[in-house]
Design a protein around this nucleic acid. Structure first.
Length: 291
DNA sequence: AATTTAATAT
DNA sequence: AATATTAAAT
């Protein structure tokens, strides 16, 4: 019977068009909001068919620093003012829609997280680097568009203030205390001076630049002259979200929350923070209102 | 509908 | 001080 043939034909065709797990990932993010997970103290079920692919979530407990407070197990602690959602959900709302009511804790931009942000922006090219795409590329679970938008806004202001005359006269201004975070990741060359349309001036082709910027240690005024061929603007088939995940700690309001992060393109989390490496890194990681 | 920017709120 | 939220404009 050829009906059988057609059938298998259709089937294999169908199979081919299936999106890869990679493509599925980002979607997954937006469907299951961390809010819900947190709200219900759920550790999402490792659906049997995702098996070897992507265990999007794993048990936070096991990965977490034992000393950290942890925010699950409803009965874990009786009451504590620091726990949003905690103690008295009294009567009314127990089964309802906590997600609506609950406020998401403030996101803390650790140097690591910021590094991801910068990388994402760099790889996207300025044109595509808008909150949504940045967020997608970062693929940090729980990151919202407005998280990124807010950060982006601040970051842009930072860049702006970098271009203008800083000098800061001997050790004063510059980034000092205020911009610790931003200073913690090198700024990818072209983020500054947005390509002048002006250009009556033929650019003296500066091949590359290189020397002369060795002294900037944790400082990044690496802008030289415009090479900047907007190469980042085409869509990369960037492999976001791989099977392997790595934990990244993002703290929210004193209670550390775990972010699952694909290992892809993680590159050098360490080297960036190494610049700051005064032992501060560990401290910066737990910014309970200092500095 | 998303982005940008400024202002404001927590 | 750092991040969120909102408003207005594009």
């Amino acid at each position: 019977m050829r009906e059988v043939e057609e059938c298998s034909n259709w089937l294999s065709n169908w199979e081919q068009q299936l999106p890869s797990p990679d493509e599925l990932m980002p979607l997954n993010q937006s469907l299951i909001t961390p809010n819900l997970l947190v709200a219900f103290n759920l550790t999402p079920n490792p659906s049997p068919n995702t098996n070897s692919n992507a265990p999007f979530f794993s048990n936070p407990q096991t990965l977490k620093n034992p000393s950290t407070p942890s925010l699950q197990t409803p009965s874990s602690h009786p009451d504590s003012a620091t726990d949003f959602e905690s103690s008295e959900l009294g009567g009314g709302n127990s089964g309802d829609e906590p997600a609506r009511t609950l406020k998401r804790p403030r996101l803390v931009w650790t140097p690591q997280l910021h590094k991801r942000f910068v990388d994402a922006v760099a790889h996207l090219g300025i044109k595509n680097a808008v909150p949504k795409t940045i967020m997608q590329l970062m693929s940090v679970d729980g990151l919202t568009r407005e998280n990124v938008a807010s950060h982006l806004q601040k970051y842009r202001l930072y860049l702006k203030r970098m271009q203008g005359g800083h000098s800061g006269g001997s050790g004063s201004g510059l980034d000092s205390a205020t911009d610790h975070l931003f200073a913690s990741s090198p700024v990818p060359a072209h983020f500054l001076h947005p390509v002048r349309p002006n250009s009556d001036q033929f650019l003296p082709f500066v091949p590359v630049v290189a020397l002369q910027q060795q002294q900037h240690h944790h400082n990044q005024m690496a802008v030289v002259s415009g090479q900047y061929r907007q190469m980042g603007q085409f869509e990369h088939p960037y492999n976001v979200a791989r099977q392997a995940h790595q934990q990244q700690q993002v703290h929210m309001m004193g209670t550390p929350v775990h972010k699952l992060v694909p290992t892809s393109y993680i590159e050098d989390l360490e080297s960036a923070t190494a610049t700051v490496a005064n032992g501060r890194k560990a401290l910066t990681l737990f910014p309970t209102g200092d500095d």
